[in-house]
Simulated assay, not measured.
Amino acid sequence: MKAKFINLIIFVLVLIPTINAQKVIRNLGFEDLDVVGRLISWEIRNPNNTYQIKIDTTQSHTGKVSLLLQSSIPNAQKRGAANAFSLIKAPNLNQKSSIKITGFIKTEEIEDGTAFIGLQLNGAKGTLTEVNTENKNIRGNTPWTEYSIESPINSDVKSISFGVQITGKGKAWFDDFNVTVDGVNLGENITLKDL
Rank of each mutant, 00 (worst) to 15 (best):
Q59A: 15
Q59G: 12
G123T: 01
A115W: 06
T58R: 04
G126V: 02
V164I: 12
K89V: 00
S148C: 14
N132L: 00
T133A: 01
S98N: 11
E108F: 08
K89Y: 15
Q59T: 06
V157N: 03
K169N: 14
Q77V: 01
S161W: 12
I166E: 08
I88S: 10
D156F: 02
G140M: 05
R139H: 10
L119V: 05
T57E: 15
T142G: 04
A81K: 06
N83A: 14
S148L: 13
I73M: 00
N135A: 10
F174H: 11
T142N: 08
T167E: 01
L128P: 06
I105Y: 06
K54V: 11
G140I: 04
P91R: 07
G113W: 09
P91C: 14
N141L: 12
N137D: 07
K171L: 12
L128H: 02
Q165C: 12
T107P: 09
G170K: 05
N132R: 01
T145V: 15
N83L: 14
L68N: 08
I166A: 04
N94A: 14
E130C: 07
E130M: 14
S97Y: 10
D56V: 11
K136C: 05
S60M: 04
T127H: 01
F162V: 04
A81G: 06
K54E: 11
P74A: 08
F162W: 10
E109H: 13
N137L: 15
A81M: 09
N83K: 10
D175W: 06
A115I: 02
T133H: 04
R139M: 13
I88Q: 05
T167M: 14
K96H: 15
D112A: 06
L87F: 10
W173Q: 00
N75E: 01
Q120F: 09
R79F: 01
G103K: 12
F174S: 09
T114K: 06
K125F: 00
F162T: 03
E134F: 04
F174K: 15
T58C: 12
N141F: 11
E146Y: 09
G80I: 02
Q95T: 02
L128E: 00
K158H: 05
E109P: 03
A172K: 10
I73C: 08
S151Q: 07
T58I: 06
Q70P: 07
